[in-house]
């Protein structure tokens, strides 16, 4: 069984880290580069550029961390390195 290969575990873990890192980069910086353009869209009174910095990116951070915890746990189990506890 391919399970338990340390190299594969680490490459999957790294891949997940880099995916998360890019998403983080997007919501921390890239989306806010376009604040002026986004501000022309208004939802419920919020200009979208302002909204992304005040709430949108924060919500994205929270959701991605729960997804990350779940995904990494699945990798741990599939690669046979999860804790017994």
């Amino acid at each position: 069984m391919a399970n338990g290969s340390p190299d594969r575990y680490w490459s999957r873990t790294s891949a997940l880290m880099w995916t998360m890192f890019v998403v983080w980069l997007f919501f921390s910086f890239i989306v806010h580069f376009f604040v002026n353009q986004l501000n022309s869209i208004v939802i419920l009174g919020f200009p979208l550029g302002f909204y992304m910095a005040a709430q949108g990116s924060l919500i994205a951070f929270v959701i991605m961390l729960f997804l990350f915890a779940k995904r990494q746990d699945a990798i741990d189990r599939e690669e046979g390195v999860a804790e017994d506890r």
Partner: peptide
């Protein structure tokens, strides 16, 4: 809002 973003997004780095 730089403070709002800065003091939350860091947790992504902590976790990953």
């Amino acid at each position: 809002l730089a403070f709002v973003l800065g003091w939350t997004g860091g947790y992504v780095l902590v976790a990953i």
